[in-house]
């Protein structure tokens, strides 16, 4: 059953879109990540123009994050103060990102930058996650109990504007979450992702937040940042396709809930290994595409009107 998407201006099978939404929603519920880093490349792969894929995916992530954050909110796993500071950074970053996106589109380099960003971030995050989770799996087997400090102290803790984050049991500079929020905001706008896959490790390893509040707090920030991206992309570039977003999110909302239930039955470390392998897989595919000789060296630009 074909449906014509009014903004993307192509005709796509409804079942493919529902399936994509459901499948990636399941994974996002399972791992507690937005799934945008998988969805945006797949949308581009099925023929949605990259600009529309990025704008629409931001819109869809708003929905899946709301769905996820409510569950975490009820369990008290959202650090509101931290979330607000991350959001402030994210607003500035994503506004800059939307502008940067329009500029790159104008000079015909947006595809390259999207792909390079994916390869770089997915590669680094995936490798770190894999090493870390494999190590902790091994540690759990060998030694049963080792007293550990809450987090390490380094130069990052000497920065000014210190703030107390009670729920995260942290006393750190507000500049840190601001910077994390900012970087994630820029990436959200350019890559069409929520940025959870970058923010979650940054919150654990850089800010030293306890794992329990990390996912809920990152989802909280993602709602506002992707809402900002949706608004700006719709306003400045007219690249948000609500019909496409609705189809994707009706699959995703259901998939995410099923995924969250499945995730509760699996070990955290096992999940992290799986996620790391998947992130590295997407990274490898995109990297290969950049290096292999294209079928046609010439292509029609997507920028001009």
């Amino acid at each position: 059953m074909q449906i014509y998407l009014p903004i993307a201006e192509i005709s796509v099978n409804v079942l493919i879109l529902l399936g994509l939404g459901g499948g990636i929603g399941f994974l996002s519920g399972l791992f507690g990540v937005g799934g945008g880093f998988l969805m945006t490349p797949l949308l581009i792969f099925i023929g949605i123009p990259p600009a529309v894929a990025v704008g629409t995916e931001a819109n869809q992530i708003v929905a899946s994050s709301v769905s996820g954050v409510l569950a975490h909110w009820r369990r008290g796993n959202v650090d509101l103060k931290m979330g607000i500071i991350l959001t402030v950074g994210g607003f500035v970053g994503s506004s800059l990102g939307v502008w940067l996106f329009a500029f790159l589109r104008e000079i015909g380099q947006v595809d390259l930058v999207i792909r390079l960003s994916y390869v770089f971030f997915l590669g680094v995050i995936g490798a770190l996650m894999l090493v870390e989770s494999l190590r902790s799996l091994r540690r759990r087997r060998s030694t049963t109990a080792s007293l550990k400090k809450l987090h390490k102290h380094n130069w990052l803790h000497g920065l000014p504007l210190k703030m107390r984050f009670q729920q995260s049991k942290l006393y750190i500079s507000a500049l840190l979450p601001l910077a994390v929020g900012f970087v994630v905001g820029v990436l959200a706008a350019i890559m069409g992702v929520g940025g959870g896959f970058i923010m979650v490790p940054a919150m654990i390893y850089l800010l030293g937040m306890p794992t329990v509040v990390v996912v809920g707090t990152s989802l909280f920030q993602i709602i506002f940042v992707t809402a900002n991206v949706t608004f700006l992309q719709a306003y400045a570039n007219q690249t948000v396709d609500v019909i496409l977003a609705l189809l994707l999110l009706s699959g995703a909302v259901i998939g995410a809930q099923l995924g969250a239930k499945a995730g509760a039955r699996l070990h955290g470390e096992h999940l992290r290994v799986l996620l790391a392998v998947m992130v590295l897989g997407v990274c490898g595919k995109l990297f290969y595409d950049l290096l292999s000789t294209p079928v046609d060296l010439y292509a029609i630009g997507t920028g001009g009107h």
Partner: peptide
Amino acid sequence: FAQNQGALYGVIAILIALVAGWLGN
């Protein structure tokens, strides 16, 4: 609507997403 009233279109797109996410939950 998307072409002529981008700002309002963006707001409505966000509202739809918020409601859909809440409904799913």
